[in-house]
């Protein structure tokens, strides 16, 4: 396609997600034929990810009192400007909460304290429950935050899913992929990597025809006992979470519990089956897990029984 020459500016626009579909295809064709340009695009993307790793922590810092007061005043002024009712009360979700979000703050991540050395099984189980609950909570916050503004949604679109999965797998240092949820009516629109204490986590975002968004949040817990589906709800965002193999998953959305459960089941069977286009899933013992986890799996049956657990009515 040399007739469609690709410009320097378009390479950047491609990396920044500012190209329309046609030109995006042209750039992708170009990159396929030009390894040097492909390396540049990859390096630029890495730069972006590093910038987020460096500075996204700021999002989690609570605003100063002055800042908060100014923000409240501005809200009032703009809301008035907007001919909407003034803000009578502070928002239910304060700023700090809305952005506490991005996975594993300085105050401690959901991974638990891996450096503590071996501890009794019970303690480990407790710890895992605790860290998984934190993981789910952060997945919920991340969902709330990144679905709030369309520009924030994804770092990398899903036009090329191999690229998206490859990039996120690299960021996480483990194979991850965004399952195909077409059969439950959701389409993958892209993903982002989020910084954590022990490396990157991945958030995949999906949308359905009704413009409802769900996010699948994937993390790599240090100790990953397989666990049953659990459920949590924060405001109007519902989250199912579980551990499968080396990874923890949390599926969040503003849907009914039943709807979300159907999708969680689809995700569960997909990730268990492994990534698409792979001839066969890698054998259990060749997966690049740390030994700690394998040992733990020997210690107890890895019984993942999503159905039975989730049938229990837990919500109000």
């Amino acid at each position: 396609m040399s007739a469609q020459r690709v410009s320097e500016a378009e390479l950047h626009a491609y990396v920044d997600g500012q190209l329309d579909g046609n030109r995006r295809l042209a750039v992708e064709r170009w990159l396929a034929d030009d390894p040097e340009a492909a390396r540049r695009a990859e390096d630029y993307r890495t730069q972006t990810a590093l910038l987020h790793d460096l500075f996204d922590t700021v999002l989690r810092e609570p605003p100063t009192d002055e800042e908060q007061e100014l923000a409240d005043r501005l809200k009032g002024r703009l809301a008035f400007n907007d001919n909407r009712p003034p803000w009578h009360a502070r928002p239910l979700v304060r700023f700090a909460a809305a952005v506490m979000l991005v996975v594993a703050g300085a105050g401690g991540g959901w991974f638990g304290r891996g450096a503590q050395g071996p501890s009794p099984v019970v303690q480990q189980q407790q710890q895992q429950r605790q860290t998984l609950a934190t993981f789910a909570e952060e997945a919920t916050q991340a969902h709330r935050f990144y679905t709030a503004d369309e520009r924030f949604q994804v770092e990398l679109g899903a036009d090329n899913q191999d690229e998206l999965n490859g990039w996120l797998s690299k960021r996480m240092g483990r194979d991850v992929f965004g399952p195909d949820l077409g059969r439950v009516g959701f389409r993958l629109i892209g993903g982002r990597s989020l910084p954590t204490d022990l490396g990157a986590g991945a958030q995949y975002m999906y949308v359905n025809d009704g413009n409802k968004r769900i996010t699948l949040f994937v993390g790599a817990p240090r100790s990953g006992n397989a666990s049953e589906f659990s459920f949590t709800q924060n405001g109007d965002v519902l989250t199912f979470y579980w551990v499968e193999g080396p990874l923890a998953y949390a599926l969040a959305g503003r849907l009914s519990k039943e709807e979300l459960l159907q999708i969680a089941k689809a995700v569960y069977s997909d990730v268990k089956a492994g990534p698409p286009r792979r001839e066969e899933p890698p054998p259990q013992d060749q997966r690049p897990q740390d030994q700690q986890q394998q040992q733990q799996q020997q210690d107890q049956p890895a019984g993942v029984q999503p159905i039975s657990d989730t049938q229990k009515p837990k919500d109000s």
Binding site: V58, L59, P63, E67, A71, L74, K75, L78, A79, D82, R84, W87, P91, V93, F95, A98, V99, F145, A148, D149, F152
Partner: peptide
């Protein structure tokens, strides 16, 4: 609107 403003200030 409020969510937007908070996200923008972040």
């Amino acid at each position: 609107f409020g969510v937007d403003l908070e996200v923008h200030i972040a």
